[in-house]
Amino acid sequence: MQIKAAVARVQGAPLSIEALDIEDPRDNEILVKVVATGVCHTDLVVRDGMLPTPLPVVLGHEGAGIVTKVGRAISKVDVGDHVVMTFNSCGRCPSCQDHHVSYCHEFFPRNFFAARADGTSALSKQGERINGNFFGQSSFACHAICHEANVVKVDAKFDLELLGPLACGIQTGAGAVMNALKISAGKSFAVFGAGSVGLSALMAARVVGAATIVAVDTNDDRLAMARELGATHTINPTRVDATEEITKITGYGVNFALDTTGMAAVIRGAVMSLAPMGTCGILGASAMGTEITLDEVHFMSGGRRLMGIVEGESVPEVFIPMLAELNAQGRFPFDRLVKFYSLDQINEAIHDSETGKTIKPIVRMS
């Protein structure tokens, strides 16, 4: 079958809209007609060559759509089901067996190597291999092949065009608060970076009842949005020292901090903003080899903790439908972050994401 897709061919260059061939799904695969796909920072990091994904490749890993074909071994979904495609996992390693699928021992090859487990790709163009299976989907396309491990069935009552970002960015931010940090009512929380991930974390902190919610960002428009979504305080670090300001607000530092930037200096500041026994989570993608420097005495003497978080430590089959329901109830309004683009406008969507013009772009495939 021939499909329309956005192909990354050159590091840092615009994606090209091309007609590709896609194979029929194998016995253990699912073909999804993609309705819409979120644009995530990770897509841009990979396009720019900062992670080991081969080119040419079809990126996209926040796809939502309708199942059109299933392999003979598939029992989780059927033709016509509405689904969200999330990150892939092996299902067999100790982490997967313990229901910690975001820490799958094969997370990198299953998600970043853009190939099936046997090294093949379902995508091609006139005999040229186009790498696919990025995050088990490659959903910058009108159709994508995914797997039982990374497909999540959702109720048809939800707006399918809106749900794609729940697969990664929104899930990551909200899950960091709800699943990894496990912030409880009355606690204090600071998020560094008020993009889609950070604002999702902020909304989740409000859902769980955090008493003090601080958003830190250099973009005043993002800070204004943060206040509308539930931040009790906002800080622009170009004007004041964020750590000092957080200490003034709380008296001793926050119980929890979350860095979404992946920048070593910001992470250090987030850790310095912690109260004794406080925990800082980090989840921003950065270049391989990036190192973090901490004040050892401050870190050790206060019993502070630093933890990495992948995909919000969620169980997608449970967490994605829960976030969709919270949105439907008006308690988790991530729809306020999005702007829609057509597939032909995908480079505009990427540009608007990079420049901060749009918090969360979603690309419609129709």
Rank of each mutant, 00 (worst) to 15 (best):
Q126C: 07
T358M: 03
L337V: 10
G302M: 10
K187S: 14
A215E: 07
I282L: 10
S188T: 12
A257R: 01
G169I: 06
G80I: 11
G63I: 03
L294Q: 05
F135R: 04
M50S: 13
L20N: 09
G127E: 11
L123N: 10
H99I: 05
E291D: 04
V67M: 00
G175C: 13
I320E: 10
G269P: 03
D43S: 02
A149M: 11
Q126G: 06
F87T: 04
R331Y: 06
A257G: 15
G312K: 06
P276M: 13
E348W: 01
Q2G: 02
I3D: 03
Q329I: 00
V46K: 02
R227L: 10
G262D: 03
D27W: 02
F158A: 11
S286A: 15
S286Y: 05
L294P: 05
Q2V: 04
V152R: 03
F108D: 14
G186C: 08
D295Q: 10
I246M: 13
S102P: 08
G49W: 06
V216F: 02
G198T: 07
L31Y: 06
T68R: 11
T279E: 12
D48Y: 05
S138A: 13
A114D: 04
R364D: 03
G91A: 11
G132H: 03
R72P: 00
G193R: 06
V254W: 01
L59T: 07
A210Q: 02
